[in-house]
Amino acid sequence: MGTSLYFDDLVEGQSFESTGRTVTESDLTFFSMLSGDWNPIHCDVGFSSKTRYGERLVHGAFGIALATGMIHSLGIFEKSAVAMMSLKDWKFRKPITLGMTLRLKLFILEKDPGKSERVGRVNRLLQLVDESGSIIQEGESDMLILKSGR
């Protein structure tokens, strides 16, 4: 989209969708290095081939990081976001695997203008979905957002 939206621009029920991003071997390796999580389900082909999934799985926390990055790539909060206030009820519905293409669906659930003249609270549903539209991860996130661009 590329245009910043402000509190008054958003409508409950409104939705946005990011472009897709394919998860790579480099993603898995870099996230292992960043997090320090070298669990064999992520990094050992022999071990993971014997699990019920039959392959290595990408870290669940990588999905959260990817989803928050995809929010930024939408561009709708670039100049209006003040702070992410929460990440709640996050569910890991299906594993992330190498080669999977994911995108973010973002839904405006609720708006609360509060008492501030400067910012309001917006509750959003974030869904990380695969190429078939299956929900891989999802949860809610409150944010503070500027009420106007002035």
Rank of each mutant, 00 (worst) to 15 (best):
D112C: 07
S134K: 05
G75H: 05
Q14D: 09
A61K: 06
M85D: 06
Q14M: 13
L87P: 04
V82F: 13
R103C: 12
M1L: 13
R93I: 00
W90L: 15
G54T: 07
L28G: 03
I135K: 14
T24C: 06
D44T: 02
A61R: 11
F62V: 01
A65P: 02
D27M: 05
P113Y: 06
I71F: 00
L5S: 08
R118C: 11
S15P: 04
Y6H: 00
N39T: 00
S32T: 12
F30G: 13
E55R: 12
S49C: 02
S148T: 10
S15L: 04
V45T: 03
H42Y: 06
F7L: 04
D130C: 04
T24Q: 04
L57C: 04
R124T: 08
S48A: 15
L98N: 04
E131V: 00
L34A: 13
T24Y: 05
E117R: 15
M100A: 10
C43H: 12
S80I: 10
E25W: 09
M84G: 12
F107V: 09
I96S: 01
K115I: 03
I41Y: 01
L98M: 11
T24S: 15
A83W: 03
L5Y: 11
S26H: 11
L34F: 14
I136V: 12
L144T: 01
I71G: 03
D8P: 01
S134E: 14
S86T: 11
R118N: 11
K79I: 00
V11N: 15
D8H: 14
S26Q: 15
I135Q: 11
E78L: 12
N123M: 07
I71A: 07
L126W: 01
F62H: 03
F30C: 09
A65V: 01
T97C: 08
V23D: 02
E117N: 14
Y53K: 02
G54W: 11
A81K: 07
W38M: 15
S80M: 14
I145C: 06
M100F: 08
M84A: 11
I71L: 13
S49R: 12
E17L: 08
E17Y: 02
L34K: 09
V122S: 01
R103D: 03
F31R: 06
K91P: 01
R121C: 06
E110S: 13
D112W: 01
T29P: 07
G60R: 05
E25G: 08
A61N: 13
V11K: 15
H42P: 09
V122H: 00
D112N: 14
R56I: 00
H59Q: 13
T22N: 03
T24H: 08
V119T: 14
V45D: 14
K147S: 05
I64W: 02
S86H: 07
G75P: 08
K50W: 02
G13D: 13
F7Y: 15
T68W: 03
A81Q: 14
G13Q: 12
E110I: 00
G99A: 11
K88E: 12
